[in-house]
Amino acid sequence: MNRYLPLSVLALAILAFATLMLVIAPGMQIDARSVPEGLRKFTQSEQRGRNVYVAMGCVYCHSQQPRSPDQAPDVERGWGRPSVAADYAFDSPHQLGTMRTGPDLLNVGARLPSEGWHLTHLYQPRAIFDWSIMPAYPFLFERKDQAAAGDRVVALPPGYAPESGVIVARPEALDLVAYLQALDRTYPAPTDSLRDDGYASGPSVEDARARGEDG
């Protein structure tokens, strides 16, 4: 190891090879899959809400990638079928997440469709679950002496309600809830779906796919 140039060229070549394997090849494979019929683009309000989700850093506690029943009981917890690559066709930046301090949210809109529930929960999670360690987001709401026409008043149990007046949702909170309600990938997975099947037992996964039963 006495020459600078070969060292640099080889080092960069190895990185290029890794990029081919980890970025380019899977990228082409994922790109080739069709967008599921049941998946729709976000509305403007949902997209604004998604931006709030990203800006608040929800991803650091909530994943959006239910695992397969071969690996974990995510389906039984109501988090939805195992997600496939095409489920994220309209997600950018991706919010797959690596942590479950809180539950998986990919299908939270199907599991918890109520706007009122989400507003209360975002204003003060412990108003609903006393064991929750989720942050409260009071700055997405404001206290008013009296709700004006069109205001969305947050329902709060005694002890969490303000001493006087009402708590109403700011537009950011309403957008965020619109996004959470839109998190719904309960449509069937496409037959050419792509995901990590490394936990499936036996060689039957591809066959099951071919028969349209998702594994």
Partner: peptide
């Protein structure tokens, strides 16, 4: 970091 996730099986195995 994506084991069990929505990415190709071969890719996870590779890593």
């Amino acid at each position: 970091h994506l084991i069990g996730g929505p990415v190709p099986t071969w890719l996870v195995t590779l890593s």
